[in-house]
Write a protein that binds this DNA or RNA. Structure first.
Ligand SMILES: [Mn+2]
Ligand SMILES: [Mn+2]
Ligand SMILES: [Zn+2]
Ligand SMILES: [Zn+2]
Lengths: 139, 139
DNA sequence: ATCTAGTTTATAATAATTCTAAACTAGAAA
DNA sequence: TTTCTAGTTTAGAATTATTATAAACTAGAT
């Protein structure tokens, strides 16, 4: 799988989610998905990186809109870890994380690296939506 | 252990943490700790409940200050679960939670009810600070 | 009774996010 | 092609949770 010039692929992908392939969305797609490793970010960090190079700017509102749209479309996963900032993850498979309280960074833990040998039954009428563990670490 | 008129006890407790036993703090202590079961709350809900009865009001700033002071003193535990609101817990023992995405309420899971038979080693130089699981549930 | 550090409070400030509404554009249709 | 329109982008305002500020108040030591 070639990692550059995936533009056509992203156009397809966006169209298949009823999202118009605008230049802003394609730019963000390339930035987020033209990479081999998981990428964890906040809107703040994404905004900085997208708008680093002196090229045409993407507005903060569009960064918010796009991250929301990509999350709804299933291209991104939101990771609930910090009380005052949303984190997002390009790895949409079910998996766990270390969250470093010092650097405020997330690191993937493969799903198989944590084994839950006993899990309680949810209250009646409710079902488990998500069981991903965040292990908080520090120095 | 009698559940009413624990005032003297709270006075001691506060003094032992170098917190003056003001009437606001005692009122909040009584509200939070004069109960047998775990209580989970946000500052918003606590503020409403403390100021429900037409008695003298405790300001929102004091609610924030007190929750912060009680958390630092170890009377309360902060539960990181929601991206835009802090949750607190009168149960300061290590334990797990269900978080209902519909009602936005926490329910305790006793520590022994979840067994982690395999846990990854943290990155070198880092140690695990907290390993409490939040299981997200919904209808 | 006096004094002072700690506390409370109203209010302002901040930070993350969402909303609004006007300008812009992708792409379907004429 | 040009026209048209729903979808999109954008700057800026609004909202929400929280923290900071600074003046008034008070616990409790002296
Ligand atoms: Mn916040
Ligand atoms: Mn927020
Ligand atoms: Zn991840
Ligand atoms: Zn609890």
């Amino acid at each position: 799988m070639i990692i550059s010039d995936n533009l056509k692929m992203y156009v397809q992908k966006l169209r298949s989610s009823n999202l118009r392939p605008t230049k802003q969305r394609l730019k963000i797609c390339q930035f987020l998905f033209d990479r081999k490793k998981t990428f964890h970010f906040t809107v703040e960090t994404l905004n900085k990186k997208i708008n680093k190079n002196g090229t045409t700017k993407v507005s903060l509102a569009t960064i918010y809109n796009t991250v929301e749209a990509f999350t709804s479309a299933g291209y991104l996963k939101e990771i609930l870890t910090s009380k005052n900032k949303s984190y997002y993850d390009t790895n949409i498979k079910s998996h766990h994380h270390f969250y470093d309280e010092g650097s405020k960074e997330l690191t993937d833990i493969h799903y198989s690296q944590i084994k839950l040998s006993k899990v309680p039954v949810p209250p009646k009428g409710k079902k488990i939506k998500n069981l991903e563990v965040v292990i908080r670490i520090q120095k």
